[in-house]
Design a protein around this nucleic acid. Structure first.
Lengths: 113, 113
DNA sequence: GCATTATTTCTATAATTATGGAAATATAGA
DNA sequence: TCTATATTTCCATAATTATAGAAATAATGC
């Protein structure tokens, strides 16, 4: 992870609409949600939603796949975990006992609600 | 943690100079670094540095204390850990086995290098 | 009080980012 | 092919954010 990628990823979620979208997708799990469903739940007009989804996609924090006429968006858990790790990297110069734990998210198949 | 605070905190590190400053402070540990030392290491002019330090302070991701004529800045580890937790909150709707771990940084006294 | 050093505030300019209507594109079924 | 639905692109406007010089403020020692 280089600093420019980290800034791009952080910028992509440093905006209220996009952070809401991202969190919605993190909570949605690996199946994700179609764009229209996201816009409906968050009350975001189509063109604005598309702009924000593109920002998140370009940053690599979300992925998409086409299913018929719908485009399903999903959180990229690996990218998110990489970003979180980057922020705590070499905490306190890597001295022992300083940073014992690491926050991450490991979704698995079969966790539908 | 509400979404506006999260956006403010993310915005504060979604900028190359500020992310460098923040990471430098995360790695510096609980003693922190005086403003001048940060500016010198990162080659940031005083007024620009002051602007960025204020952004980070207002967001609550760093703290400061005055020591003689120097102002020492330190990473606010608790705030950072709160932000990381927020991003993974209710991952996959909170289904078990989805998000077993959580990245965080726990600096301790006596970890000087 | 004066000189020195550290940091911040003020200011103008430049650059980037967000918003949403309208039009365009893409997919699928009748 | 025609129609309906889903999503994106284009565009102009508005709003926000970054940069850094110059001046101001603050703390210390002589």
């Amino acid at each position: 992870m280089d600093i420019k990628s980290a800034v791009t990823q952080l910028s992509s979620i440093a905006q209220e609409a996009r952070l809401e979208i991202f969190r919605l997708l993190v909570q949605a799990g690996i199946e994700g949600l179609p764009a229209g469903s996201i816009g409906e739940q968050l009350k975001i007009p189509p063109s604005t939603l598309s702009f924000h989804l593109k920002e998140l996609s370009h940053a690599g924090l979300i992925n998409s796949r086409q299913v018929s006429r719908f485009i399903y968006y999903t959180a990229n858990y690996a990218a998110m975990n990489g970003l979180l790790a980057y922020l705590t990297e070499n905490c306190c110069a890597g001295v022992s006992k300083c940073c014992p734990e690491a926050t991450s998210c490991h979704p698995e198949k079969g966790n539908k609600s």
